[in-house]
Simulated scan of single mutants.
Amino acid sequence: MSVQKLQERTFNFAEGELLLINKPYKWTSFDVVGKIRNSLKPLKLKVGHAGTLDPLATGLLILCTGKLTKQIDTFQSEDKEYTGTMVLGATTPSFDMETEVDAEFPLDALTEEAIYAAATPFTGDIQQYPPAHSAVKINGERLYVKARRGEEQELRLRNVTVHVFEITRIALPEVDFRIACSKGTYIRSLVSDFGRLLNNGAYLSKLTRTRSGSFLLEDAIEVTDMVSYLKLQRELHTLNSAVANS
């Protein structure tokens, strides 16, 4: 959505707005929240997100402002959908590209039939461990902070539901996929477990959230466009105030 399209809408950020943002690559979810919150100054409004995306993931991030932040848990509990790419034949400690490859495996024995078949056991109600490099808190501290210090932690299994796990392209070592799942599903963990099931290795190289509940990425706003729109609104407000007081 462009700045011009944004200007066709009427926003009431204090009463509460739900903003669909396309999170950029390498931005944290909190980076996006901070950017929008700062752009809303001098209004002192609450801004929060409904569902964290890893820094290396892109796609739909739901933001709530003002009074609507009270409903964040409702939006966060909705099912999610993702598209992504995994790399077979190697593993990393973080299960994605944040850390370097720590083990490699031959791909010669892998067949397309085996790869397609490996998706089936991960469909339905499953259990998974969160990645050691994740935002899950243990004793008030996030796991990735402990992992970066080299501390090992006992991880707890969590119950999640994968509604759809579809392999959409195989071009080894890359495999593309589409996943629809319940909240709290770690796609990195699923990819790692997928490689292990094949007696091989796998890590996540690309991930995009395309849907959250009934909200779609195609309707999302670029962060830069939202910031430009808010800057323009501030300038117009300042100009109108100056005219009114002249």
Results as ranks from 00 to 15, higher is better:
Ser205Gly: 12
Leu204Cys: 15
Leu198Thr: 15
Ser182Val: 04
Arg188Val: 03
Leu197Met: 14
Lys206His: 10
Arg209Met: 01
Ser182Asp: 11
Pro173Ser: 08
Tyr203Val: 07
Val191Gly: 00
Glu174Asp: 08
Val191Tyr: 01
Cys181Ala: 13
Cys181Val: 05
Ser182Lys: 09
Cys181Asn: 13
Gly195Gln: 07
Arg178Glu: 10
Asn199Cys: 08
Leu198Cys: 14
Ser205Met: 12
Asn200Gln: 14
Asp176Ala: 14
Leu172Gly: 09
Thr208Glu: 13
Asn199Ile: 06
Phe194Ala: 05
Leu172Glu: 11
Lys183Leu: 04
Leu204Pro: 06
Ser192Tyr: 15
Val175Ala: 01
Ser189Cys: 07
Leu207Glu: 03
Val191Asn: 02
Arg188Tyr: 03
Ser182Asn: 05
Lys206Met: 11
Lys206Trp: 05
Lys183Gln: 12
Gly195Asp: 05
Thr185Gly: 08
Lys183Pro: 00
Leu197Gln: 10
Arg209Leu: 02
Arg196Leu: 14
Ile187Trp: 08
Asn199Trp: 12
Ser182Pro: 01
Ile187Met: 00
Ile179Cys: 09
Phe194Thr: 11
Tyr186Ala: 09
Ala202Leu: 10
Thr185Asn: 06
Asn200Arg: 13
Arg178Pro: 04
Ala180Gly: 05
Lys183Asp: 00
Ile187Pro: 00
Arg188Glu: 02
Gly201Thr: 09
Gly195Glu: 05
Glu174Arg: 06
Gly201Pro: 12
Phe177Cys: 08
Lys206Thr: 07
Asn200Pro: 09
Gly184Ala: 08
Asn200Val: 13
Leu190Phe: 04
Ile187Cys: 03
Cys181Glu: 11
Leu172Ala: 13
Ile179Tyr: 07
Arg188Met: 02
Leu197Ala: 12
Arg196Cys: 14
Tyr186Arg: 02
Pro173Asn: 08
Gly195Ile: 06
Leu198Lys: 14
Leu172Cys: 11
Arg188Pro: 01
Val175Cys: 03
Lys183Ala: 07
Ser182Ala: 06
Val191Thr: 06
Thr208Trp: 05
Asn199Met: 08
Gly195His: 06
Gly195Lys: 04
Val191Met: 02
Lys206Ile: 02
Arg178Thr: 12
Val191Pro: 00
Asn200Asp: 14
Pro173Ala: 05
Leu190Ser: 04
Glu174Met: 00
Arg178Lys: 13
Phe177Trp: 08
Leu198Val: 13
Ser205His: 10
Pro173Arg: 03
Val175Ser: 06
Ser205Gln: 09
Gly184Glu: 04
Leu190Trp: 10
Leu204Ala: 12
Gly201Lys: 11
Ala202Thr: 03
Ile187Phe: 09
Ser192Gln: 12
Tyr203Thr: 04
Gly184Thr: 02
Leu207His: 03
Leu197Asp: 12
Arg178Tyr: 07
Leu190Asn: 00
Val191Asp: 00
Cys181Ser: 11
Pro173Phe: 05
Ala202Ile: 08
Tyr203Asp: 02
Asn200Met: 11
Leu172Ser: 12
Asp176Ser: 15
Thr185Cys: 03
Ser205Cys: 09
Gly201Tyr: 11
Ala180Phe: 03
Gly201Gln: 13
Asp176Ile: 08
Leu172Tyr: 13
Ser192His: 15
Pro173Glu: 06
Arg178Cys: 03
Ser192Met: 10
Pro173His: 07
Phe194Asp: 01
Tyr186Ile: 03
Cys181Pro: 09
Arg196Ile: 15
Ser189Asp: 03
Ser192Asp: 14
